[in-house]
Design a protein around this nucleic acid. Structure first.
Lengths: 356, 356
DNA sequence: GGCCGATTTGTAATCGATTGCAAAAACCGG
DNA sequence: CCGGTTTTTGCAATCGATTACAAATCGGCC
């Protein structure tokens, strides 16, 4: 049955004027072997005579051949891609994470797809679907509100390779890497306490969410341990943005007896808070000490240089990707988890309590 | 010829206990039609009776079917992916660009692959190869040192959809979007001149490269227009990092008659410069005015808030991706180019020249 | 009812690789 | 030189979709 062959490829066409992309058949023809042999020769894996190997490689070089990844992906049922999903692509905190993930990924032959949920649950589900559709072989999740979708996880992705990083930790049985937010926050607050501060305020992240809650817990724990009670007007809930830092700071400092120090759940809000304090005529650190969390690239150059808790972002990215590769390679193993160390970085935004 | 069918799929297997991923054949069987019809019904494009359409959709829903993108990609010879290549993934300037690109891309059904060259020419070539290999259908290039690879562009990628953004403009006949760096720099310097400054220094980006050169040109042009000569010791070349900003600033202020104002080629170096000035006991803007370039997310909250030239990053990302989609969709058209507007944002880091 | 044209559906080729099995070739000791 | 192994190669199926063309069905009109 003769069905149309529009622009039938190769066959009698002179090799030299080949214009379309050469494929494995072209190589086979030129090298005088079968496609199977070509495949084996090029992948270097199969057993193949040195002579044929050379012949095939020569032909491939001559035709300027490159493997068609789409065909390969279909056949081997992989995409050699991973999905990196964050809640907000424009969050500077992710910069080094991206870098770490990308570095390990490319070294292992994977490409990284950017995913951005903007905290929209539907978009999050879309990324799960992409995983299922074969767009990627694995996924790194750095979004907070996943847990609700248990159904998604259980029913449809029982064995999908997923690593959760820095968020939504205690939920499903997924692999994850994070830091000890509670302990780190406690360390931050202890630093302020050690400087003599007793009235300490806190600007938290969104709190039904795990991350914000953990840092708030750490704050309260440290204060409780030190025997200080925290009036509710010394706590405010922001959304990690500079603007919300300003807003929360203002609210806290409108209280009757404002704090002398502030533990802020991330550096961006700390920048906002410091800006607001300056606008209110308060000096940092002389009048108010401020400590942040994350250690962004600018924190060191801010004025005053920001005391903060450093998270090893590049390493977190690397570790996360490494775990994911592990997961994708060796089928589902017992879900691993890994806690990365944080570090208190003391700079110029904190100082001993001034004697009143 | 009976060849092995390991775990032969479907055939007599009860549909309900189907565990493997259903494919188009499973749908066809359940709906009692051919795979061709299924494909047409699901893509909603082909002509298909409403009745069959419903039948097929029902079957698909029942089996929880999802299209296999790998198969589809092979068949239609597309990847529905674009490559976004930058010189340094951890550069905060890219944040909003990423966001803009990703937003348009996903709206159009494309995924975005992250590419990071670290200014390594080999890695850059790898990304070109990825494009050719079919990993992606198009590429956004934001790297500076591409031009040398004319060969790559001509010989092997004559018609590859590529949009160059913000860098390496005047080279090959590729589509590109950028801003008028020379004019913007001139505007920045004029702002300082208008404030009464005459001794103005410049911290430039790497200068054999186009971008650094353009901003340097703009600086010199504005100074020349105003009739001021610039001693070479008032110009320094950095690498856009905070540290190099510090370093260059120190060098410039070691000169005998240091400038009273500084135009810095990007905000990060401006942060460094301001930090260094502070360390040297100079106040910004009282003693020295500083203007940057980019308007990073922190520039507004820096202390002092940084006067700078704003680039519309999100829009640049959007525009770039839009152009790329255009290019990919409609075959090669005449290479477009687009120049986005910049804006002088006056904040607290610049002030009128103090009367000595 | 029969015929013709317009719709709808089915058949099978195709995209470009990988790979299980069998056939061919090479090797080897007797 | 031959039978038996071991290597190397080739054949053809396969991954899961899309689509050109042919076949079947439908509808309307005489």
């Amino acid at each position: 049955m003769e069905v149309g062959h529009p622009a039938k490829k190769g066959e009698g066409r002179p090799v030299a004027t080949m214009v379309a992309r050469p494929n494995i058949k072209d190589i086979a023809r030129l090298a005088g072997v079968s496609t199977a042999t070509v495949s084996r020769a090029l992948s270097d894996s199969g057993v193949v005579t040195e002579a044929t190997r050379a012949k095939v490689h020569d032909a491939a070089r001559k035709l300027n051949y490159r493997l068609n990844v789409r065909a390969r992906n279909l056949r081997i049922q992989k995409s050699m891609a991973v999905l990196l999903v964050v809640r907000n692509m424009a969050n500077p905190f992710y910069l080094d994470i991206f870098k770490g993930v990308e570095g390990i990924a490319r070294a292992a032959g994977y490409v990284v797809l950017m995913g951005n949920t903007e905290d929209d649950a539907n978009r999050e589900i879309e990324y799960f679907d992409m995983l299922r559709d074969g767009h990627a072989d694995g996924m790194i999740l750095m979004t907070g509100n996943l847990p609700q979708e248990h159904q998604v996880l259980d029913d449809r992705f029982g064995s999908a390779p997923i690593v959760v990083a820095l968020e939504a930790i205690e939920n499903c049985g997924l692999a994850h890497v994070d830091v000890d937010n509670r302990a780190a926050s406690r360390t931050a607050v202890r630093h302020l306490l050690d400087l003599g501060h007793t009235r300490i305020g806190h600007i938290a992240g969104p709190v039904p969410e795990v991350l914000g809650q953990l840092r708030l817990d750490g704050f309260r724990m440290a204060m409780a341990e030190a025997g200080h009670s925290v009036p509710s007007c010394h706590e405010a809930v922001g959304d990690y943005s500079i603007q919300s830092g300003r807003r929360c700071c203002r609210r806290i400092f409108e209280s009757e007896t404002p704090p002398t120090a502030l533990f802020v759940a991330n550096d961006e809000m700390a920048f906002g808070a410091i800006g607001e304090l300056r606008d209110m005529g308060l000096r940092v650190p002389q009048d108010v000490s401020v400590i942040g969390f994350d250690d962004l690239f600018v924190s060191d150059s801010f004025s005053p240089p920001l005391t903060t808790i450093r998270q090893p972002c590049i390493e977190i990215g690397r570790k996360t990707m490494t775990m994911l590769i592990d997961l994708m390679g060796s089928g589902r193993r017992s879900p691993q988890m890994c806690q990365m160390p944080t570090e208190l970085v003391v700079r110029g935004s904190t100082a001993p309590l001034a004697q009143a």
